[in-house]
Amino acid sequence: MISDIERQYAIEQFYYREARLLDGRQYQQWLSLVSESIRYVMPARVNALVNNRQRGEEAMIAIDNELEGSDGLGCPIREEGYAHLFVRVDRAYKMNSWADNPPARTRRIIGNVELLECGDESIRVRSNFHLFFSRPGSDNFIYSGQRNDQLLMIDGGFKIADREVIMDYANIDVPTLGLIF
């Protein structure tokens, strides 16, 4: 049995390695960190109407009021599986993926790693990220958001089985949300 501190350390190391592979454009290696049954969702975000019957309560300004996720009947920005991620990774190594030729420079900082629920086979983890994005011939951008992950423990390592990416934008003013967050 490993201690909570050891587990926290192992997961943080996993995320740092993941960020390094993505910033290093080693997307195929990144794909090996992903379960083939992955669900990768980015809810849409809106400026929600505040319900005045909820005044005085946390529910009135809850983040959830702003999200259109995969369970509802809105339209999430991304709802993907392994096939989508495979296409994205494959595209990155083609000559004619024009938006990334030449490729953007990125730097991911992962923080606030919180273990929410530890089962025998899987762990729910929340983390925050800032991603610096510099594309040739364009301004530089900062992406900011949160990831809610479910990680599977396999052979002493981890695989990402579920990732929900919550961006901190309603009006999207970054060049693309098609990156791997």
Binding site: I77, E79, G137, I172, L177
Partner: peptide, 24 residues
């Protein structure tokens, strides 16, 4: 709805190429 969002919109696999072309 994923017929749209997979390829188009701000996270779409295809429209990332279009939007970059429009900026350029």
């Amino acid at each position: 709805r994923t017929n749209y969002s997979s390829f188009f919109g701000p996270g779409g696999i295809l429209e990332q190429e279009d939007s970059e072309a429009w900026m350029q």
